[in-house]
Amino acid sequence: MVKGPDPLHLAEVFGLDEKTAMRYAHSARALLEQAAEQPSQ
């Protein structure tokens, strides 16, 4: 089971270059971590 953004999955599904998929996954992880740190309303 994969949790969180998976660069390989992004590359396959969207036809992205590996480096682009890695950048997108990194950005998504950062956004998820930032959201987790915010208090829920």
Rank of each mutant, 00 (worst) to 15 (best):
E18N: 10
A30D: 08
E18D: 11
L31K: 15
L10M: 10
Q34H: 09
R29N: 07
F14L: 14
Q34Y: 03
H26F: 00
Y24R: 14
L8Q: 13
R29L: 09
L8D: 09
D6I: 03
R29P: 00
P7Y: 06
P7K: 05
G15A: 06
Q38F: 06
P7F: 01
L32K: 08
M22D: 15
S27H: 14
G15W: 07
A25S: 14
P5V: 09
Q34S: 12
A21R: 01
D6E: 09
L31M: 09
G15K: 05
A28Y: 01
R23T: 12
G4L: 04
E33Y: 04
Y24I: 15
D6K: 04
F14W: 08
F14G: 00
D17Y: 01
E33L: 14
L10I: 03
A21W: 02
R23F: 01
A11G: 04
S27P: 00
Y24S: 07
A25P: 00
G15Y: 03
V2F: 15
V2E: 15
D17H: 07
A21H: 00
M1R: 11
A11S: 13
A21K: 03
L10V: 02
L8P: 00
V2K: 15
D6S: 03
A21T: 02
M1Q: 13
E12D: 09
E37A: 15
L32Q: 14
Q41A: 12
Q34T: 14
T20K: 10
E33P: 03
E18R: 13
P39N: 12
E12Y: 03
F14M: 07
V13K: 13
V2H: 13
Q34C: 05
A25D: 08
Q34A: 11
R29G: 05
S40P: 12
Q41I: 07
A21V: 00
E12I: 12
A35I: 07
V13L: 13
L32I: 14
H26T: 09
H26N: 03
L16R: 09
Q38Y: 04
Y24V: 15
P5Q: 06
A28K: 02
Q38T: 11
E37C: 12
K19F: 02
R29V: 08
A30M: 10
M1D: 11
Q38A: 03
